[in-house]
Design a protein around this nucleic acid. Structure first.
Lengths: 339, 339
DNA sequence: TTGTATGCGTTATCAC
DNA sequence: GTGATAACGCATACAA
């Protein structure tokens, strides 16, 4: 049988109030009382019941982390850092996967489910502007958006400057002498902010270089998995005038694209340069290693946790936008010397 | 303000008992009653409070999943499947990372923390035999071990036959004509079951082929990350008589080894063949694609969830050992034609 | 079939 | 500074 507060109180011959005080670190407890209680606690191996505590206080100590798929490396790396950052401030994290399902997303977003379990939620990508605006008002739980920008100060969020990041990636390819630069990752069917912003940055960089926008060079990717990057790259390479560089909106897409180039009998970076976004560990060991836009995920994670705890503390505070730094990392996949 | 059971009862002019019956799907409720209650529930947008329910019933509906690091691809893929399988039977999953910390592991294992939050725990690798035996008895929460075998029927667990899997992988290399076969992943400092079993299978296969055990060919790896595989492979290749094949105890180690071979100016599979274990998606797109021992992770996940729910239902049932099937997948990294 | 009342383990309000 | 007790929201034993 597991000991309760009352058991401890009985054994220490004090009231439950005193035991509770000791347990929660209340100051005004006489030393001898405290000692007696702590002895009883140790004797009985008492542990506070977090569920009862939650019912009473209304706080669960749990944050929700909503991602499309936890086995997408970037989300896994993000989750790792978030769990770590959350633990540092006394929170645990429960991961929910939306699996690209809009219905499930809405459910998690509006608390339609039983996520009264969460004190707050960290929501990562794949939400359309409409959905977010729509639930405005009905929302009650502290929410922080990850990787989505430009919601008119309506939500807390932490993200990189996607337009600039895409611009920088494209500019890096241009600096390497590439002129037929394709992009993989647009999502024309959806109204997701991130891909739209990356497309904008890509186009801006091309325009700045005086290069035309070739419509066939802008390839959609429904999901951001390796297979999607592979398929899109195969299509690009089959064009009459194939690109000499590809900007992928995620490293995972880039891993697929890499493989596609080789399967087409071409070389990276000599024939086609490739750059991604995210800086996942996989890209540091691939052959060739993958140039990418690095995101400082630990920073994003700690900021996200700081944001959500701040909002839990003050639900009415104005929304805060955190822009995380990014940085182009030139690795083998865009090397130019061997050209 | 959020509606409670009592609010609904008041509005529907019935007792809380009746509302509770309706909510929990109790059968014997008259249709008109049910209708009235459901109307009130809809009006008030009532949702049962899971915390209160838990306090009352003792069930949280949450399973713990303990892994070393969630951003190790295999664990991420496993987590994905487990979350999915758990959701199918009404459970949510909370992930804890041990980060290879024995202390943290013990804490999670013995419930020293506040994991009274869990109805059961799925514990993945990195537990030594001693730790497991030691906590025998003090343990109270339903526990299922993933990937650990041979605990004398003391614990439920689901795993592949590690000895056989390692044997098969090694045999595959032998069948390709390799004779100087190294292995990466032993953990001599620890008493972990999995690496020991894989080493045993590796050695058995060599003996069966009449090959000597070369001590320098058995390389340790403290963690199973890419960098560890990379470092170990570099050492192997620097030997006076380097191996012509490497069996890595995980795909991630293999990804590091792959890169190391190339950095040493050699080719895979011509100069060195490489095979891993896990069948992570990364290995299907790498260059060359990675031969591996595939684990049927969805099967493992569903079995694990089934096991833990069974134990929750009957804590005194005898322990069950599930052996998941495995299968060698020959891909480019062990191809022999180009030899 | 439905209503009433109790308790799950904690924190917090009120007295002392 | 400490003790008794109500309340958090729900499920259920017992009554009706």
């Amino acid at each position: 049988m597991v000991a309760t507060l009352r058991d401890v109180a009985t054994r220490a011959k004090v009231s439950v109030r005193t035991v509770s005080n000791v347990v929660s670190g209340y100051e005004h407890v006489s030393p001898q009382m405290r000692a007696r209680v702590e002895k009883a606690i140790a004797d009985l191996d008492y542990r506070p019941n977090p569920v009862a505590r939650t019912l009473r206080t209304g706080r669960t100590g749990v944050l929700g982390l909503v991602v499309p798929e936890i086995d997408v490396p970037y989300f896994a790396e993000l989750a790792r850092e978030i769990i770590h950052a959350a633990a540092a401030v006394g929170y645990r994290v429960m991961i929910d996967q939306t699996g690209h399902d809009h219905e499930r997303e809405r459910e998690l977003l509006t608390g339609g489910d039983r996520n009264m379990l969460f004190d707050g939620v960290l929501f990562s990508p794949l939400v359309t502007r409409e959905e977010l605006l729509e639930m405005q008002g009905s929302r009650t739980m502290p929410l922080v958006l990850l990787g989505e920008h430009d919601f008119d100060g309506r939500y807390d969020h932490v993200a990189i400057d996607n337009v600039q990041a895409a611009h920088d990636a494209t500019a890096h390819l241009l600096a390497g002498g590439r002129r037929r630069i394709a992009a993989i990752g647009a999502q024309p069917q959806e109204n997701y902010a991130t891909p739209q912003q990356r497309t904008a940055g890509y186009q801006r960089a091309l325009e700045a270089a005086g290069l035309p926008l070739v419509e066939e060079y802008l390839r959609p990717a429904v999901h951001y998995r390796r297979a999607d990057g592979y398929a899109a790259a195969r299509e690009l390479l089959a064009l009459p005038e194939p690109p000499d560089a590809i900007f992928c909106y995620s490293d995972l897409l880039a891993m697929g694209a890499l493989r596609a180039v080789f399967d087409a009998g071409l070389r990276v970076p000599q024939d086609v340069a490739i750059i991604g976004v995210d800086d996942i560990e996989e890209g540091r060991f691939s052959r060739p290693s993958l140039s990418t836009v690095s995101l400082d995920t630990p920073f994003i994670a700690s900021q996200a946790v700081a944001r959500v705890t701040a909002r839990i503390a003050d639900p009415d505070a104005p929304a805060v936008e955190i822009t995380a730094p990014h940085q182009v990392l030139a690795r083998e996949s865009t090397a130019t010397s061997a050209k």
